[in-house]
Nucleic acid binder design. Structure first.
Lengths: 244, 244
DNA sequence: ATGATGGATAATGTATACATTCATCCGGAT
DNA sequence: ATCCGGATGAATGTATACATTATCCATCAT
């Protein structure tokens, strides 16, 4: 066989199918058939099956009762619930981090990220290094989960945030560098600070609810997109698979 | 091929492997190899792979980076966290049920189950129809999730609850009809009543925290087993795969 | 002695032929 | 006209041969 970039056919199919699904090439509810996909991707049915199985694990496909897969379909309510769910889970991570003594070394790293996030803002309120912020924001959320000290929770949070629109950086991609989003970053960063402070001083309930509210920024951004700027839908990762 | 009871080899392998894992035949961390399993189960590697893929989806197996699967291993802390996580998720379901107007018809069904649960208790405090209670308890928890009206949440709760020791009926199997557990049912049922009342009167926060506390009955039962009655470990579904 | 190297072995990855199942439609009997 | 039943096709299920890769161990050079 030819080299396809030093990877297995399964992984190639996985990435290609994921890309197409997130891109909206297959509307929600579309059934994916092995044979045509195998022909399209020029590989056999075996790695296609394996890839679809993993996409079901990711939550992008649903298994049919009598075999086969369909693209999972998401209503706006589903996406809002997925965001709320992330808030609940991250809130739990924050609470546990506060209740159980979070390791000082990791807390230190969290504060370091906090300072770096501060540095993303310029003197002018509208001046923000969007790219750097997005990257550091991801680090902050990862550290928060680590701080909880719960492998089980970490696993489920990673799972829930694998749906791109439920990820903490859903509205932070380069493609969505938009006034409204940029301005929300000041609020978000203040929440980051409060969250770190609450964890450091063992205020579990405070930490939990700050994290929930923090996730709701994404909810507001989503509502803005849907109601006032629908042409942005295609710019937000994963929103292409919103149906109806 | 021979008939093996009107099902596919994949499903047969799935059920058999699940049974063996939950039974503790493969200690946590054991790597499962396709070839020996295929020989043992008298089928080819293909359905074995498919079955293992689904067990990874269930959270019983972990994928290795370079292919292959290992039995997931759980520490006591992991099990406690899984129970806490169920509490958090069911709490969220309860809160949403309260906040969003739960359909009266479903609320009615919840109250009906509540009455049936009451009927499981005899005049003597120690007299409980354990089997019926267990069954109705499952219905109650299912209805609670339905009441939330969130398909996304329902999906994740079903997922989290697929680990048997994190299920609402983990300590309610016929094999664990034990004084300590039986007595906890009175407290549990009082929480069921309070939960239904809180939802009916739209008290979201109250509902959320009752549900969390409700899950912690399982935590207490687990601690009892571990500390005071370790020989019961094998009687509680799934606890066999606790390691260390 | 130690580290690199290479090959044997054993595992998963892949293609493909064939089996089975399920839905659909057509035709005939009532 | 309607219902039942079998043919048909298209889909997944399964077995298996072969390809590829990873790992371990022996061996050699330093």
């Amino acid at each position: 066989m030819e080299e396809t970039g030093r990877t297995t056919h399964t992984l190639a199919a996985l990435m290609e199918l994921r890309k197409r699904i997130l891109n909206g090439d297959f509307p929600g509810g579309t059934r994916l058939f092995e044979v045509p996909l195998a022909e399209t991707l020029q590989i056999s049915r075996t790695p296609i099956r394996e890839a679809m199985s993993r996409l079901a694990e990711e939550g992008l496909l649903d298994r049919l009762t009598n075999g086969g897969f369909v693209v999972r379909s998401f209503t706006l309510a589903d996406v809002l619930d997925a965001i709320e769910l992330r808030g609940v889970l991250e809130g739990t991570a924050a609470r546990l981090a506060a209740e159980r003594s979070a390791p000082p070394a990791v807390l230190e790293r969290l504060n370091h990220v906090l300072l770096q996030l501060d540095a993303c803002f310029g003197r002018d309120a509208n001046e923000v290094d969007f790219e750097a912020y997005s990257n550091l924001n991801g680090q902050f959320h990862t550290l928060l989960v680590t701080l909880s000290g719960s492998a089980v929770l970490q696993r489920e949070i990673e799972r829930a945030t694998r749906l791109p629109f439920a990820s903490p950086s859903a509205f932070l991609s380069g493609r969505t560098n938009i006034d409204v989003f940029r301005q929300s970053l000041h609020v978000a960063q203040e929440q980051h600070r409060a969250l770190a402070a609450a964890i450091a001083s063992r205020e579990g309930t405070r930490a939990e609810f700050i994290a929930r509210e923090h996730a709701r920024i994404a909810r507001r951004n989503l509502e803005y997109v849907m109601l006032e700027n629908p042409e942005l839908i295609i710019s937000v990762p994963g929103l292409a698979l919103l149906n109806s």
